[in-house]
Design a protein around this nucleic acid. Sequence first.
DNA 1: AAATTTTATGCATGATTTCGCCCGATTTGA
DNA 2: TCAAATCGGGCGAAATCATGCATAAAATTT
Lengths: 256, 256
Amino acid sequence: MELLQKERQSQIFDLLGRKGRVLAGDLASQFGVSEDTIRRDLREMAAAGRCERVYGGALAVTTLRQPLSARLTLATERKADLARCAIACFRPGMTIFIDAGSTNLAIARALPEDMSLTVVTNAPAIAMTLMDRQGVDIIMIGGSLDRHVGANLGARTLDALASLIPDMTVIGACGLDPSVGITASLFEDAEIKRLAAANSRSVMAAVTNEKFSLHYPHVVCGREKISCLVVENDAPEDMTRSFSALGIPVHRAGQA
Amino acid sequence: MELLQKERQSQIFDLLGRKGRVLAGDLASQFGVSEDTIRRDLREMAAAGRCERVYGGALAVTTLRQPLSARLTLATERKADLARCAIACFRPGMTIFIDAGSTNLAIARALPEDMSLTVVTNAPAIAMTLMDRQGVDIIMIGGSLDRHVGANLGARTLDALASLIPDMTVIGACGLDPSVGITASLFEDAEIKRLAAANSRSVMAAVTNEKFSLHYPHVVCGREKISCLVVENDAPEDMTRSFSALGIPVHRAGQA
DNA sequence: AAATTTTATGCATGATTTCGCCCGATTTGA
DNA sequence: TCAAATCGGGCGAAATCATGCATAAAATTT
């Protein structure tokens, strides 16, 4: 498939967020264009402050470190849009479980200083982000911290979560498929998500475009369990329609 | 994996922050490049003020400032020094509870990438810092996150902590007094500390100078419970003596 | 619809960077 | 003082880069 320049750069930006670095040669073969084109892309992106140009490729702007911390500290932009839209569904006084994931971290970041909420989470990054929000009470669910997922998992986590009935769960979807529902790649992570979704009075899923039509081994919950879907403003129409058809409200980000 | 020059230098910088010094030979074999390349890196970094070049390798900029006068001006540098000293007491395989507090956070930051440890903590910041340490298993104790202490507190925290017997507890001291022992300003925080200290096989306290002779309302543990004290290079002699007299080993930071 | 401008891309070329190696100079420790 | 380790600079090969130019596609104007 042939990509437009902007699409290519956007994908490079995503890759940077995920891997922390890219090599000019790799990108060239991956996108099927010449290295010169890639170099031009990288130069442009660097000029726009979207990456740091180095000999041989480019590095993510914020941190040139491990993919995980990079993934967590990066990723704003499209996700911030999504986050603002998601927050519009929150009501003061709610108790909300926020699952791990970079999109959900963006939601935490976007929470206003003074919103009165109780947030429950098993992700240290989300807890830390919310620490300076005066209005937010934070409850952390402990457990064994998985460095890949960036959240506490395991028996203790499940146990602590079992005695909680949040008004809403903001669930992190590894993959969202119209027929299968929400799936996750890691068993233990899926277990947590499943319990949270089952206990919660409502379930919100905020997903970026690349999550659509992906499915992973572990089913978290069927699509009928989803109370509310938040998508990007250029989310594929056919995907969102199949959810709307089920009576699930779909909120598009960035639309006035 | 092959690294780009900038990445290599960035990692060297990280190592410097963690160990305080690096050797050209070690780096060469570690990164799989020639010593000449490493020397060029170090020279460049030194030119940029990111390290101090010395015969055989390089030193962190913090450690370079002469013996102890000018260097110990910045609190973070003093703590990094303290941290390196504290870490020398850790042994591979240990299970260590690390309490909240900025000094303890510095200890977490200073932990080497590859040290094999199980770290238990109720402070999200410490958990996040350790997330990229491959050798460290992290267990988070959940609870209600206190935004002032920066740690999870409360009944659930106490409960989860009760079933843990760490090899060592690195306790955060709000105040350390030779006669009273360790005290804390917040009741709930003190409760956690007290339980951790009581359950643990040994207790380390790493304290900066300003902690001495301070005491707060809530007693955490008497001085006799302390197994090991880590203090700054220029800690007041009379304070340390009263602990040494009890048979408590006192480690001074920044001494070869 | 045709003509014109703009843009994206690939290729060639000469410049630049990286890096291993070598050699003579310098530092270290005994 | 001496020997060994370390150092800095210079050299060359290979990789990477920036630039100019030509071509083709896309967008714009006529």
